[in-house]
Design a protein around this nucleic acid. Sequence first.
DNA 1: AAACAGCGCAACCGCCTCGGA
DNA 2: TTCCGAGGCGGTTGCGCTGTT
Length: 294
Amino acid sequence: MGRSPCCSKEGLNRGAWTALEDKILTAYIKAHGEGKWRNLPKRAGLKRCGKSCRLRWLNYLRPDIKRGNISHEEEELIIRLHKLLGNRWSLIAGRLPGRTDNEIKNYWNTTLGKKANAQSSSQSKQNSQSKSRAIEPITSTQPSKSTQATQVIRTKATRCPKVLLSMQSPPPPPETEIHSSTATEDDSPQASLLNHPQDGPNFHCGTEEVRAYHNDSDFLNFGRWNAFQPSDVIDGDGSMDNDYDKILARGSERSLALFDDLTSKDWAMNRCLEDNSTLDLEYLAHLLDSEEWP
DNA sequence: AAACAGCGCAACCGCCTCGGA
DNA sequence: TTCCGAGGCGGTTGCGCTGTT
């Protein structure tokens, strides 16, 4: 009964990784690159599940991982992004270069969730005193167990194999061409586009169909957005073709435009944050603080 | 000093999506 | 079109550390 395990668990090490295992895994990935996780343990001579190797690499061994305490700016950003995206940890982590989804998830569950709870409880006190509001803030530290607050944009963390470039944007110079499918996360098409962050706000879909789609759908769904093709928009009967699109929160054109800017800056951040992290975090925080934010 | 409780974090689990055959 | 393997994600677990009694 049930699903078959991702790999044979017999004879495999479990639990904490040893320094030797880390060394072997790191050396193997440096030599052969990421991917083929299922075969990796065998080839590398590790008695570990492929998934376990992947997790260890992504959450701990990767060289670009930022260690140490989460800064105040990062914390603020996490709170805001969580308010916006809910428990989409990978998406949130994507906005915080060097941080892993696991780390952010843990941080939220242990620290920020409580803070958010405390804040919201005091806020709801105020609210109850000064008449109720239509929309409640995010309050739960366990959103999965409770309903997401109405303003959370529920997205799918989809991969972005395709990118729709704006017809209005000038064609990118050769060095900013869309990367091939071998690109890593940091080299994602979105990131590469933002080699010219000044072009960022102009990165939008250029057809009326697309605009209609934005008006009526998941304006924050980067994956869908980037994978978007005009033909995706309307079925034969004129309805949206994906169920999850239907349950997504509705975003206004205004919000979309704002988020164009936000995501663009964000992508730029993924590229440039090593040099400029504070600045970009502040910028993001500013955007999220903007009055125009829904 | 020992026992206990609480917390933080690494690791695991199971489900989902995607892409290729 | 369907099936299946691989990879990715969010939720949960459990171990080890630290603070308190």
